[in-house]
Simulated assay, not measured.
Amino acid sequence: MIRVPNVRVIDQDGGQLGILNTRDAITQANNAGFDLIEISPTANPPVCKIGDFGKHKYELAKKQKDARKKQHIVHLKELKMHPKTEEHDYSYRIKHAREFLLDGDKVKITVAFKGREMAYLEFGRSILQRAEEELNEVAECEIRARLEGRNMFSIFTVKKDVFRKAKAERDRQRKQEEERKRIAEGGDAVAPVPAPKTSGVEDVQGDEEVVVDSEQEV
């Protein structure tokens, strides 16, 4: 319900009708078979448009849905190590870190110290420095070797150009898989999906929302 006495009105064809008494504007909209829709309530006076409220509501919902599709939710994945982590365990965690990063998530690599291990903090720094060097092709180090209590950690975020290429390749493979399934079910074949170009790709990350996962050790 529009509660202000006067509003600025736009007609159904986009024409400016100027500032009208709210009741007169509602009557004019109803006489034309439309509704008076408030589109800018914070303006002075508020701006209203004569139109189909149902259609307006549908278009607004569609815009919000499209905006959510473009939004990329970033999870923070934590991988734990120890100063004496074995080589194969270290490699396994770095492999997972790379996969998480290419999916667009952030990665927190934590070295946890127990008891007298606190006397050997340089081992933790060495592990985190090595991880940074091995992830350098796909990630940037956002927080480097920070000590909090008995934990030392670094946080990595994927490089935007690397993420764009990885996402484009995943989308291409997904479309190919959908096409293979369609053909297997008896559909007509279409041209194969071309490989993504490495330049001129639109930034698909959009707005980011960081979601912190519970601690995990893989």
Rank of each mutant, 00 (worst) to 15 (best):
P45E: 00
Q28S: 12
F53V: 14
T42G: 09
Q28C: 06
F34N: 05
Q28W: 13
T42S: 12
Q28R: 15
F34M: 00
F34I: 00
C48T: 12
I50W: 10
A43R: 11
I26V: 07
I37E: 03
P41Q: 05
N31K: 08
Q28I: 09
F34Q: 02
V47I: 11
I39Q: 05
I37M: 02
G51I: 03
Q28E: 11
C48A: 08
G33D: 00
K57I: 10
I39R: 10
C48E: 06
L36P: 05
G51H: 08
E38I: 07
I39A: 03
I26A: 06
P45W: 06
I37R: 04
A29K: 04
I50T: 08
P46A: 00
P46I: 02
N44M: 13
T42D: 13
I39S: 04
A43N: 13
G54V: 00
D35E: 05
A43P: 10
P41D: 08
D52E: 14
K49M: 12
G51C: 05
I50G: 07
K55I: 09
K57S: 12
A29T: 03
I26R: 12
P46N: 02
I26N: 05
I50M: 10
P45S: 01
E38F: 01
F53K: 15
L36R: 04
D52R: 13
C48Q: 07
N44R: 15
C48H: 07
D52L: 10
K49R: 15
Q28N: 13
G51V: 06
D35L: 04
G54I: 00
S40A: 10
L36E: 02
A29E: 07
A43M: 09
T27P: 04
A43F: 13
V47W: 06
T27F: 13
V47F: 05
N31I: 04
I26S: 11
L36D: 05
D52V: 09
F34W: 07
G51W: 09
E38R: 06
N44Y: 14
A32C: 01
P41F: 08
I50C: 06
G54C: 02
N30V: 00
P46W: 08
N30R: 06
